[in-house]
Nucleic acid binder design. Structure first.
Ligand SMILES: [Mn+2]
Ligand SMILES: [Mn+2]
Ligand SMILES: [Zn+2]
Ligand SMILES: [Zn+2]
Lengths: 144, 144
DNA sequence: CCGCGAATTTAGACACTGTCTAACCCTCAC
DNA sequence: GTGAGGGTTAGACAGTGTCTAAATTCGCGG
């Protein structure tokens, strides 16, 4: 299982295309552009920000395609979805297990490597269900 | 510090009014109705569901008032806000420390008492910030 | 080269949640 | 009664995301 976190910021378009292919995603021009925006910055971006970045030089990708593509990337587990801000979903190119600080004043999101948090005993899951992952969000605010 | 979890489902209107007063909330008719919906059921309800319940017998409270009131309840720390479903915020009348199971298939939310989860070492917070709380969401899906 | 079906992209209409405004209502003090 | 202030309201509005139907592009066999 290849992992996206091996990507370097300067990764070439060809590598991006390969990454998509390894995740069973047909690397169209638009999909490569969107993946590039996500993996070059390696930040937590909203759909809106992605649309802006992709179309910064000149309009080349529609809103519908960006939403379609993000959903596809999610299905193929190339990226993660974070539901933290009530107004917008943000997408996380880092699919390794990790958690987040969320500054309630600024909205800023910061990664926390999974090894920095140790969870003791997980409680018994509701009957008939299995775990699909654990999300931990530590809300922070400016000191004093 | 009085706590809302001492409320019983059958709690009378008068008690609800007292609860609001203890939280420095002027108990108007609409606010009592909304609090009753929240604390009688003690479930996680969306604004939409609250509007429906409050106006089930006959229309008596506007959308604007429900949103205004929920925001007021939040400020006064009478309820909590949960950002888990991308489509709607849900409100939690249980303000004691606890976490949640989230069934990704059904959208169902279930409480996890805080003592059922032990967090080891918290990572160092970003400089200049203090913790404002920790939210843990265990996503689950139907087994097999 | 064609030609054709499937996959992809697109503009714009649409749905949904939540916010805002400006008028209105209600109570209470004077 | 009057005025002030808090509370409520309808409905317009905004932001985010979805859907549809048409257009474009792609892959591929002939
Ligand atoms: Mn480009
Ligand atoms: Mn009523
Ligand atoms: Zn992250
Ligand atoms: Zn809860």
């Amino acid at each position: 299982m290849e992992s996206s976190q091996t990507l370097k910021p300067g990764m070439a378009k060809e590598s991006i295309a390969d990454l998509l292919r390894r995740h069973e995603i047909n690397p169209t021009h638009q999909r490569v552009e969107i993946a590039q925006v996500l993996f070059e910055r390696c930040e937590h971006l909203s759909a809106d920000q992605i649309i802006s970045h992709v179309n910064a030089r000149f309009a080349e990708t529609s809103k519908a395609t960006v939403y379609n593509t993000l959903k596809l990337f999610l299905e193929k587990k190339l990226i993660r979805e974070l539901i933290i801000d009530p107004n917008k979903v943000v997408y996380d190119p880092n699919t390794t297990p990790h958690h987040h600080f969320y500054d309630v004043a600024t909205g800023r999101l910061t990664d926390i490597p999974a090894d920095n948090i140790r969870i003791g005993t997980l409680p018994a899951l509701p009957p008939g269900t299995v775990s699909d992952g654990v999300d931990i969000i530590i809300r922070t605010r400016p000191a004093a």
